[in-house]
């Protein structure tokens, strides 16, 4: 049987870091402009898919870039920056291609229905919102918000991955990478779904009134991730 207390005492820092990473992921999801099915029909502002798919897409890209950087260096700052950059590029590319589709394909201007003026460009929004829709496309503020969300999600994901890789263990490197990736993906999905239930489908970004709900998701993620962190550190540390 494994020495539960010993492993936890030895790796308590990583348990805390994983929990913080999970909380960051949960917070980051609130920044991403998620439109869900209505946005896929250009009837709501945001990207036309669900929270989980977007957060997972950006976050897993962050994990891959963080993992690639970890092959070269053990410097935590570089690994985390690499993860953030990967996730930001992924979400930014998704949003710019989505914007092309909305403008040149669907033929609607990017417009937010939640605010009258774009907080960043100060452009008037409500005149451009088609009747019967809740906005469409990705206005500048949503785009910026999405990139911030990608950065936070990427930082969270790479902190989780870096901490899991740093837990004291006797595993071969290839096996450790496999274990750490599986646990990081599991923790990522749990923390991507919890905020999506908090948001309830669609959000435009940090200017959306729903954004103020984030403390609830952060508290929920804190509790859930702490438990996930304990079992993943115990599993990796015990081998």
């Amino acid at each position: 049987m494994i020495d539960v207390a010993g492993i936890l005492m030895q790796n308590i820092l990583y348990v805390i870091l994983i929990t913080l990473g999970g909380v960051l992921i949960s917070w980051s999801v609130h920044f991403v402009p998620v439109g869900g099915a209505p946005a896929a029909m250009a009837q709501a502002t945001g990207i036309g898919t669900g929270t989980v798919q977007l957060a997972a897409g950006a976050g897993l890209t962050g994990l891959v870039t963080a993992g690639a950087m970890m092959q070269i260096t053990n410097n935590a700052a570089l690994v985390i920056a690499s993860g953030a950059a990967g996730a930001m590029i992924m979400i930014a590319v998704t949003m710019i291609v989505g914007t092309w589709v909305y403008i040149y394909g669907v033929g609607c201007p990017p417009a937010s229905a939640k605010v009258k003026y774009d907080p960043i460009t100060k452009d008037r929004q409500d005149l451009y919102v088609s009747q019967g829709t809740e906005g469409h496309g990705l206005p500048t503020v949503s785009y910026v918000s999405g990139v911030i969300g990608g950065a936070l999600g990427g930082i969270g994901g790479s902190v989780v991955y870096y901490s899991l890789m740093s837990v004291t263990n006797q595993l071969a490197l290839a096996d450790l990478v496999g274990m750490a990736s599986v646990f990081a993906v599991g923790i990522f999905f749990v923390n991507a779904v919890i905020p999506s239930y908090n948001i309830g489908g669609t959000i435009e970004g940090f200017h959306d009134p729903k954004f103020k709900r984030f403390p609830k998701a952060v508290v929920a993620s804190l509790v859930a991730t702490l438990f996930c962190a304990l079992i993943s550190v115990l599993a990796i540390g015990g081998l």
Binding site: A37, I187, I199, I231, S232
Partner: peptide
Amino acid sequence: GLGTGVPSIGMLALGMGVLAATFGLAV
């Protein structure tokens, strides 16, 4: 009515499942 798409709950199921399965089999 979850307020979001049904796929999210399937991903949550497997996310929790992969954590529990790896932990259980490892220890």
